[in-house]
Structure formats: C-alpha cells, structure tokens
C-alpha cells in the first residue's frame, strides 16, 4: 500500500535519512525500531509531508505523494499520531476529536466513529468536556490515537505511542493497536520499546543512523541475536 523508495532527508548539515526503502503492505502492522536519532520520526514526518525529502519518495497505492501538502496527504488517508501526542491542550476531548475528523463532511459517519472510539476508550467518554491538557499522560495518548482514528485512516502511523506511560497503559495501547488492525486499518508503528513493537508487528525494520540495517518478520527479528543484544537489552550468550 505504502512504498518508500530511497528516501533521503537532510536537516541543515545532517544527513538524517540516507536512502531508506521499505513497504507497508495493506492490512499489516509494520514497525520501525531503532535508537534515539536513528531517523524513525523523520521517516514518519516525511511520509506525511511535514519534512521535505532531499531525494527519493513515497507513494500510496502507486501514486506518488511528492510535493503534496500535509493536509492533502492526510485527506488521502494517511494519518500520524505524532511523537509527544501533540493533542490540543486548551481544547476539550470532543473538540480534539472533531479536529481529527476535520476533513470529513459526513456528519453521521463522524458521530458513528465518535461512538466507536468512545467504546475503544471509555475513559475518553467520561472526559469528553474536559480540556485535554488537564488529563493524565495515558489519557492524552488515548486521545491522540482516538483523534487519529477519527479521520478513518487507511494507514495509521504512530510515533512512540508508549513513551512515558505506565506499563499497564502501554499494554492497553498495544492491545488497541491489535484491535484497530484487526478491523482493517494498516499500521506503521515507530517504537523504542522494540520488544512490544516486534511482538505485534507482522514485519519489522531496524533503523540505525539513517539506514535500514535489518529487516524481517516481527517474530524473526525478536529472535535475532543481533537485534536482541542491541535493542532488547538481552544478553545473547555469545561473547
């Protein structure tokens, strides 16, 4: 569905992405893992047009997205739940959700999707009139995911959804990722929590300083010694 070809990004003098290529097949969960500064967030930002690539490109179902503005890429069905959540703190839960559905004009469909996300996150329904900035970190992350779902995306990209959250909330977020995917949404997940990400992912890519160094099905990467020693913090027995 989504094809990234030879994508390169420069930030000032830094070559943040050095020609990476990968695919996100329809209906799957794909994850990008890697250390801080490897280029994971940059990849997501350039897919959605917030960062302009210096070469290479992204296409959705064969259609190139180069030169399109973020708003138009989002309207094509790619949505990003960004790093740090970036919910609108001075707006209520409901207003945040309405913004998620900003591009849509089907009022009934939006109402229906709102009921759906409230079913997925009952906590948000309790907080519907509350200013998002006053909610807990976990609730804000739920809101960020719910807001992204409100656009009825074909492809949901999530940047570090587990960052800074209590383990029980992290588990809940990953359960939700499975549920959303089972309902037909393709997912591209960026995580530092490599173990949790690889456990849900159909396919994983490891990014190291702007290059993809390993790739493979999630389970295989989870078992790979190099990945385990570098990203899962496990001793592999080989010295």
């Amino acid at each position: 569905m989504l094809t990234i070809e030879n994508l390169s990004v420069h930030y000032g003098g830094i070559h943040a992405l050095q020609g990476i290529s990968f695919d996100v097949p329809e209906g799957k969960i794909v994850t990008l893992i890697g250390a801080n500064g490897a280029g994971k967030s940059t990849t997501l930002k350039s897919i959605v047009g917030l960062v302009k690539p210096s070469s290479g490109g992204v296409s959705l179902d064969g259609e190139p997205l180069q030169g399109l503005q973020t708003k138009d890429i989002v309207r094509k069905g790619i949505v990003l739940a960004p790093e740090g959540r970036r919910i609108f703190p001075n707006l209520t839960t409901e207003e945040n959700l309405a913004l998620g559905a900003f591009a849509r004009n089907d009022k009934d469909g939006v109402e229906e999707d709102k009921r759906k996300v409230f079913k997925l996150f009952p906590r948000l329904e309790e907080r519907r009139k509350q200013k998002a900035g006053t909610m807990s970190g976990g609730e804000q992350q739920m809101l960020a995911v719910a807001r992204a779902l409100m656009s009825r995306p074909k492809l949901l990209m999530m940047d570090e959804p587990s960052l800074g959250l209590a383990p029980i909330i992290v588990k809940m977020i990953f359960d939700i990722i499975r549920t959303i995917n089972a309902e037909g949404t393709t997912i591209l997940l960026v995580e530092q929590n490599a173990k949790a990400a690889l456990e849900v992912a159909d396919y994983g890519y490891v990014l190291e300083t702007g290059r993809i160094t390993f790739s493979g099905p999630g389970r295989e990467l989870l078992a790979d010694d190099r990945v385990r020693s570098a990203y899962l913090g496990e001793s592999t027995g080989k010295k």
């Binding site: 989002v74 970036r86 591009a103």
Partner: peptide, 9 residues
C-alpha cells in the same frame, strides 16, 4: 504542525 496533521489548510 499538529493542525496540519488534522488536514487543516
């Protein structure tokens, strides 16, 4: 940027 991600012009 978050507004751009909401498909706002």
């Amino acid at each position: 940027d978050a507004a751009r991600l909401m498909a706002i012009d």
